[in-house]
Design a protein around this nucleic acid. Sequence first.
DNA 1: CTGAAAGCGCTTACAG
DNA 2: CTGAAAGCGCTTACAG
Lengths: 338, 338
Amino acid sequence: MKRQSPTLKKIASNLKLSVSTVSRALNDNKTISNSTKEKVKKEAERLNYVPNVLAKNFRNKKMNIIGVIVPNITHDFTTTILKGIFIESQELGYRTIVSETNDDPDKEQKILEEMTQFGVDGILLSLSRNTTDLSPILSTLQKKPLIIFDKASDKVPCTQIVIDEVAASFNAVEYLIKTGKKRIAIIKEVQNSFNSERRYQGYVKALKKYNLPIDENLILKIDGSCINDVRNVTFQLINFKNKPDAIFCITDAIAIGVIKALKEKSIAIPDDVSVVGFSNSGYSTVIEPSLTSVNQPGNQMGRVAIKQIIEEINNNDEFVISKSIQIKTKLIVRESTH
Amino acid sequence: MKRQSPTLKKIASNLKLSVSTVSRALNDNKTISNSTKEKVKKEAERLNYVPNVLAKNFRNKKMNIIGVIVPNITHDFTTTILKGIFIESQELGYRTIVSETNDDPDKEQKILEEMTQFGVDGILLSLSRNTTDLSPILSTLQKKPLIIFDKASDKVPCTQIVIDEVAASFNAVEYLIKTGKKRIAIIKEVQNSFNSERRYQGYVKALKKYNLPIDENLILKIDGSCINDVRNVTFQLINFKNKPDAIFCITDAIAIGVIKALKEKSIAIPDDVSVVGFSNSGYSTVIEPSLTSVNQPGNQMGRVAIKQIIEEINNNDEFVISKSIQIKTKLIVRESTH
DNA sequence: CTGAAAGCGCTTACAG
DNA sequence: CTGAAAGCGCTTACAG
C-alpha cells in the first residue's frame, strides 16, 4: 500500500525498451528475442514486479473468477464438492466466489444477477430446493456460461453434473434384496426435488427387476426441512401389519432419525429392519449401529464442474452442447445392514 | 456476450451530455442537477446499463474482494464461520474468495502470495495447524490488511478474532465440578495448537478455583489428525486405579471417540463418567447419549471478522490498532453429563 | 452545474 | 525483432 509497485513502464524505462516489448517479453510472446526476454524477466524480478491484475482483467475483459451458488454451505456433501471446486479451479488458474441461497428462490435470483453484473466468467449453480420459476436462471444463461450441479433440473437447457441417482439407489435397494429383504420401504421428500425423484425411480427399478411388489404403504414422504417428522413416520411404518424389513432413506439425516426411532422401539438393526442412508456423511460412522450409505464423490463432482465450466467459458462464441454428466457412486456397507 | 453492453459514452451521446456528467450523475455526485440526474438515470435504465465492474475496479484500484483462508472447509465450525462471513460481506458489498490450506504451511504461503498478487483488498486467515514459520504471514501483513481468526497466534501483530477459549473451557469444567465430579480428565492435542493450549488453561483455572488437584495422569494428549488414538487413550484412562469421573475433550470428534470407547467397556455415561465436547457440532446430537458441548457462535465470529477487516481496509493509511476480539461461548448441556 | 482532458496499467493491431 | 499509438471504460482534478 505505502510503496507504489513497479509497472511495465518502469521496467521499460530502466531497460530503455518500449512498454510493448516488455509486455510481450513477460508474456513469452514468440516475436521477442530470447535475450531481451531474459533481460526483461531479470529486471522484473529485481524490481519485484507484480502485474496489476486489475488492469489485466480490465484489458482482457476477463476476471478469471467463477461464481459458485449453493443452497447451504453447511451441508456435508456440499463441502466436499466445494473442496473439489477449490482444488481444480486453483490448478486451472481461476478463483471462485461462493454464495449461499439458503433455499430461497429470491435470494438465488439476486445472487445470479449480482454475479452476472459483477462480471464472473461463468457460474456453477446448485438449485435451491424451492425454486420453481426458472426464468431468472434462463435469463442469466443468456449472458453467462452456466452449469447446474448436484441439485439439478432437466428443464434448464444447460450442462448438468449430477450423481447418477437412479443407479445409486438401484444398487442400494438391489443390495438389500440380495441380503434377503423383501419388504423394503422408502422415505423420500415431499418437495418436488429432482434428486429425491430420481432416487425413487432407482428404488422402483430395483423392485421391478426382482419382481417385488410396489406397496404404497411402504412409500413415505417427509418434509425435507423438518427432520422431526422422521420419528413419526418410522413409528407409522413399523405399525403396519406387514411391516417393512428394510428402510431405504433418501438422506443420511433421515436414516439417523430412523435408526433412533427403531432403537427406541427396541427393533433390532439390521436383523429385524435394515437401514440404508444416502451421502455417506460423517454421521454414518457416529451413529450406532454405523450406517450403510451411498457414497457420493463430491470432490470429483466439483472438479468435473470446474473443468466443464472453464471449457464452456473458453468456447463462449461457439455453439456449446449441453451434456448431462453422471457421477458414479458406491454403496458403503456398514452395520445397519448385513 | 453477444451484444455489447452500453457504456457511459453511449448514454452521454444519446443525451448530448459529456461522459463526465453521466458518470457523476450515476454516482449521485452533488454537483449535478437533479433534473439531469433523473434524465441520465432514466436513460441508463432504458438501455439496461450495467457499469463495467472491471473498469471500475481498475480505476478505483479496489476489487471489493476479501480473501478468506481456512485449513479445511469440511469442518463443521468452519462452515458456520463461513456462513457468517458470506452474510456480512454480502451486506457490506464485498465478495469473498475462499481457499483451503489443508493444514499445509507451504500451501498457506502460496495462497497468501497469490491472494496478495491477485489484489484482494484484505485477508482473513485461520492458521494452518502446522504453521511454525510466521514470516510469510508477517510479510503479507506489510502489503495487505490481514486479520487472523479462530486458529490464531499471538505472535502475529494483527487483530485476532477468537473464541474466548479460556472462559469456554473454564465454564465447562466448572459445570462438571458443580455436578459433583472431582476427577476430571482432559484430552488435548499434541500439536502446538494455540486453541488447545487455551482450552487447557481454562481447565487448570477451574480446577484451581475449586481447589482440586491437578493430576498429570488425567492430562492426556493425542494427535489431532489421528482420531483412532482416542480409543486407546480412553482405555488407558479408565484403567488407572484412580479413574476419572469426567472427561473433558478438546473437540467433539475426540468426545465421540471417548463415548464409543466407554460404551464398549460398559461404563455408564454420565453416571460413572461424564463427557464434554467442544464446538457443538452436528455429531453432538447424533451420538448416544447426546453430547454436552461448548457452542461456538461461528456466525458471529464470521460477521465480526468481516466488519473488522473492512474497517481496517478503509483505514488503510492510518495507524491501525490491533485488537484481540474474544467471542463468548455457551455450554449446551445434553445427556452425556448431569 | 457541466465539459474537456488526462490517466489508471495493460495489450495489441499496425508499421517498420 | 521492436516501437509508437490507440484504446479498454471509468473517474476526477481543473477550468469555466
